[in-house]
């Protein structure tokens, strides 16, 4: 008699277990699928450089009376700020060489423009050494280069118009004043308009290339300290983006900040480890002249290989 009860009970348990195996295993999989987020490579953008770019863009506007030309010239600088798209890069590079060759005034204007906001050292160096870096994008000379290339992409419009007008010194000053005045306006206007970011990258590239190499060095230095959590299958599962400020002596200022980390089970660990790596690997040897560029660094950590 009790055998029937035992049989029924065992059968029901088996059925329930089987059902549990099916349902229990599938539900978490769905959740993990939803959570994985594709993440793009994020470049470092410097606020000071953006400001410089605006100044130049304004000067370009004032000299050139034609609206269409101006707009074309302006659009690149705006994109500079948020610039993160790849398609644009090809067009911007051409302008820089032209600038370096033609306008003698351009370097001066650049030198003065950064002077307002950049450290004194940078100003002293920029006028003397600028011409060479313009032609050569080599990283070692980057100390001087960053400000100049920055301006170049924005410049494309200004150089061409001013070239004929170079003789007039007075006009040039007026433009600069106008540029200073406009800068505030454009700055306010540009901030919200990040939608045009795609073009910005294009202009940003020549500038960024210099900084990028140093940023790469910084990244590799930090990445050596980064303990990647084990067990991941897709690099995305552990890739994190960290933003942190740096002091002039290369030490980390404040607490690094996680910009984004994947929603995988390793994401949080990976982000924590990355922050730890940033804090432990300092201080970093970076060119003091370009402090404006690396005062705030945003790095994306991806597992090597």
């Amino acid at each position: 008699m009790w055998r029937t009860g035992l049989l029924i009970s065992a059968a029901v348990h088996l059925v329930l277990l089987g059902w549990g195996l099916i349902t229990f295993s599938t539900s978490p999989l769905d959740a993990s699928d939803i959570e994985t987020l594709p993440v793009e490579f994020v470049e470092v953008t410097d606020l000071t450089e953006l400001d410089l770019g605006k100044e130049s863009a304004d000067t370009a506007e004032t000299p050139s009376p034609n609206d269409p030309t101006e707009k074309t010239a302006e659009t690149p600088p705006q994109t500079d700020q948020a610039g993160e798209d790849d398609p644009a890069p090809p067009p911007p590079p051409p302008p820089p060489p032209q600038e370096s060759a033609s306008p003698a005034d351009a370097p001066e204007a650049e030198a003065e423009a950064p002077a307002a906001e950049a450290p004194p050292e940078a100003i002293a160096e920029t006028p003397s050494e600028e011409p060479p870096p313009v032609t050569e994008p080599s990283p070692p000379q980057a100390a001087v280069a960053p400000p100049s290339p920055r301006l170049r992409p924005d410049r494309p419009a200004p150089p061409t118009p001013p070239a004929p007008e170079t003789p007039e010194a007075s006009d040039f000053n007026a433009e600069k004043i106008a540029a200073l005045i406009d800068r505030t306006n454009t700055g306010a206007a540009q901030a919200p308009s990040e939608a045009q970011a795609s073009l910005g990258v294009a202009t940003g590239r020549p500038d960024a290339r210099m900084t990028e190499s140093e940023i790469d060095a910084l990244r590799s230095q930090i990445q050596n300290c980064w303990v990647i959590p084990t067990g991941w299958t897709n690099p995305r599962e552990v890739s994190v983006t960290i933003r942190f400020g740096l002091n002039r002596d290369g030490t980390v200022a404040g607490m690094p900040e996680v910009v984004e980390f994947p929603a995988s089970q390793y994401g949080q660990v990976s982000a924590d480890n990355a922050i730890r790596a940033v804090l432990q690997c300092g201080p970093y040897a970076l060119p003091a002249a370009k402090y404006d560029q690396w005062s705030v660094v945003q790095l994306r950590f991806t597992p090597p290989g």
Binding site: M1, W2, T4, G5, S9, A10
Partner: peptide, 12 residues
């Protein structure tokens, strides 16, 4: 399993 066996048995 055993307790369910008892339950069924007793209920019957």
């Amino acid at each position: 399993v055993w307790s369910w066996a008892i339950i069924i048995d007793k209920a019957i």
